[in-house]
Simulated assay, not measured.
Amino acid sequence: MSTPRAITGAAVFLVAYLSVTFAGALADRSLPLPDAPASDVAAYYSANPAAALVVAGLQVVSVLGFAVFAWTVGRRPAMVVAGVSVLAMVVSSALTVALTLVAGSASLDTVQALRLGSFYAGGIVNVVTLGVFVLMTANGLARWLGYIAGGLATLSVLSLAFYYASALLPVGRVLSMVWTVVAAIVLARTRPTGRTVSGSSH
């Protein structure tokens, strides 16, 4: 197990995602909410292609950092879940790129489909599977922070039924990111000799 690799992956995961906020400053307006009219969505992406593409790129870099962390510390079942989480964000970013390219010419139904697809893949699917990974891996690695972060991220699936549960999406995501950094630091301090696995103690 490479502790430096785990630390690097966790750091890239967190920093690249937080950089999305600054990339959003390139836009001339706020990103419309998922339930906004398709015409507003088309107008945003038509007017702000650079901001949209930078955000999509940073999101991919972020989850690649998570992939490095997950590969370093996870057992096979947890790594499969992590792979689904990474793939979900990659799909979300690809849909964002597609939306940016066609926003000015596509039908409003196409615009809405691409926007919702990107939101659900990069939101609920990505965050819920991230939470499941954290729960599967947290034992012995900042355990209680992992249980809290993973639990909140997993519970964000409730946003499918209850609007107010959508607040769990950003909270669960960021706490899970923080957990990866803390877990990597724990690994660095304990310097285990073997590959870390879910359920191991440090």
Rank of each mutant, 00 (worst) to 15 (best):
S198N: 15
D35H: 12
A38V: 12
A67Q: 02
A142D: 01
S2W: 12
A161V: 14
S2Q: 14
A10L: 04
T96F: 05
G140A: 08
P37Q: 12
W144T: 10
I124T: 15
G172F: 01
Y120N: 15
D40L: 08
G9M: 05
V181K: 09
L95E: 04
L187F: 07
V55F: 04
S200R: 13
F13I: 08
G172Y: 01
W179E: 04
A94E: 10
F13V: 05
L187T: 05
L101R: 08
A56G: 09
S39F: 12
I7C: 07
A11C: 11
G150M: 09
T180I: 05
T72R: 03
S30F: 06
T190D: 14
A47V: 04
L175Q: 06
N139D: 13
I148L: 12
W144H: 11
T129Q: 08
S198K: 09
G131W: 00
A38L: 11
R191A: 15
V84I: 15
R5E: 11
G199A: 12
T137F: 03
A88P: 03
V15N: 03
A52T: 06
A10V: 04
S166H: 08
L152C: 09
V128S: 08
W179K: 04
V111K: 00
V182K: 05
L145R: 06
A11D: 09
L99E: 01
S30L: 08
V97K: 02
P32I: 14
S166A: 15
G24Y: 03
T137Y: 04
M136Y: 11
R189M: 09
S92N: 13
A94D: 11
R173H: 13
A121I: 11
S92E: 05
A36D: 13
A25W: 08
V54S: 02
V125E: 09
A167S: 10
R191Q: 15
A153E: 02
A103F: 07
S200L: 12
F162C: 05
V90T: 09
A25Y: 05
G104L: 06
V174Y: 11
V68S: 04
L155N: 07
A25E: 12
G9F: 02
T180Y: 03
A183E: 00
S62A: 06
Y147D: 05
T110N: 08
L31P: 03
V178S: 11
L58E: 00
N139L: 13
F13T: 03
N48E: 10
A52N: 03
F162W: 14
P32Q: 14
Y45R: 07
A188F: 14
V134Y: 01
A27C: 11
A94I: 14
S30H: 08
V20T: 13
A188N: 15
A106V: 03
R173N: 09
A6R: 00
V63A: 03
N126T: 09
L130N: 02
F22S: 08
A165N: 07
A103T: 10
R191H: 13
V91N: 12
S93T: 02
A165F: 14
F162K: 06
V86P: 00
T96Y: 05
T96P: 02
V171M: 06
G172S: 10
Y147L: 13
V73Q: 06
V54E: 01
Y164C: 03
A67H: 01
R189G: 13
F133Q: 01
V132T: 13
H202Q: 11
L101V: 10
T3E: 06
G150V: 08
